[in-house]
Design a protein around this nucleic acid. Structure first.
Lengths: 208, 208
DNA sequence: ACATGTGAAATCGTTCACAGCT
DNA sequence: AGCTGTGAACGATTTCACATGT
């Protein structure tokens, strides 16, 4: 099992390689990956070493091959099914993103309590009442749930996801959710990010 | 200057203490803060030690006092001015959040290229054409900029922010932005978060 | 008894430096 | 000559364990 840091960097490498590929480059060197992603060349090499991937000392790494090796580590074969709870502005932004994409990651259903939304398709995902969550998740092999409800409802949404058997949660609500040990949760709280960035921005400004 | 890890945890402590306060508790122990935030008690004590804060061995830490000490470290005195570029679904979600809040953090202007939005107020922030960004930022002591434009326009938005003198950037576009050394940037990419969480969710499931 | 504050140890993550290959 | 692969050094972060205070 990879560490969080390494898995995150590998995913970033994959993203930038997919972008790089379109300019018909076949191979890439560790220092080029480093340049684009803002890491050091030895960190890139170390990361690839950690997953047992080898390049060529003359030509570097084969882009297509490396993409598919990382892809295979992160998400082997079939489609990954997601659900999203909360179809507000943020929920819609995420639904829109995954409707464009090739269906490696697919939002199979979205949930809300708003009667005007239930039964509608929002960017190709059907909207259900949140009470139907447990049944739909159980019938669809859903891997992870995304929470984009207001802060007050986030813990309840998480509890429903956990009850349905989901092991991965991404929480965008600006509140800390409590989960058992066997759930992997990523809390993306822009209000915390704003405070952190303003803190460092001020320090960077003062350093002049 | 605090490390990223410590500053982030301190901000989280502040958030949960503000919430805890309303239940009229005056004091709190390190193990309680640890419980709520999902850290260990000794990490909480170490963090507070690192900023020179002392509690009481009988009663723990005074909540109000601790909140204001952290507040003073992260953002002393006056309001922090923010701008946001891109008034789509995600931009609106963030604008909505900061319109509710007490004006410690305030989005003083938003920017877009959509003619229907320019001149309008979106959740109390006036929308301008992106070409006016540099002037408005320079005249308003803006601390950090938030990027919520589509991927293709994110680098351009960042370049404009940097040209205007901003030192802190939060980028929500699913693309890696390049910035000079003296800019503090936080890249919040939910597409990377989704891949990472699905990876760990699968591993957690397999562990059963 | 039970909490804080904190050296010291342990763990985790990154970088260095260079052998080996092409 | 310039790259990869990697042991070893380094640095950062977390945890341990306990002296000290109430």
């Amino acid at each position: 099992l990879l560490s969080e840091k390494i898995s995150e960097r590998l995913i970033i490498y994959k993203f930038i390689l997919q972008r790089h590929k379109s300019k018909n480059n076949i191979n890439i060197f560790s220092h080029q990956i480093a340049e684009i992603t803002g890491n050091t060349a030895s960190q890139v090499r170390r990361d690839l070493m950690d997953v047992g991937y080898s390049g060529n000392q003359k030509t570097g790494y084969n882009i297509d091959n490396l993409i598919s090796v990382i892809q295979e580590i992160i998400a082997p074969n079939h489609t990954i099914n997601l659900v999203i709870i909360g179809v507000g502005n943020l929920g819609k932004a995420i639904l829109r993103y995954y409707s464009d994409l090739s269906p490696k990651y697919s939002i199979v259903a979205c949930f809300d309590t708003n009667k005007d939304l239930i039964g509608q398709y929002i960017f190709h995902s059907k909207c259900y009442h949140i009470n139907e969550l447990i049944n739909i998740v159980k019938n669809n092999e859903v891997n992870t749930g995304i929470i984009t409800v207001p802060a007050a409802e986030a813990q309840n949404a998480a509890d429903k996801l956990i009850e349905s058997g989901i092991k991965g949660i991404i929480n965008f609500a600006p509140v800390r959710i409590k989960t058992p040990e066997d759930i992997y949760i990523e809390q993306i709280d822009f209000s915390i990010a704003v405070e952190k960035v303003t803190y460092f921005a001020r320090r960077f400004k003062d350093a002049l």
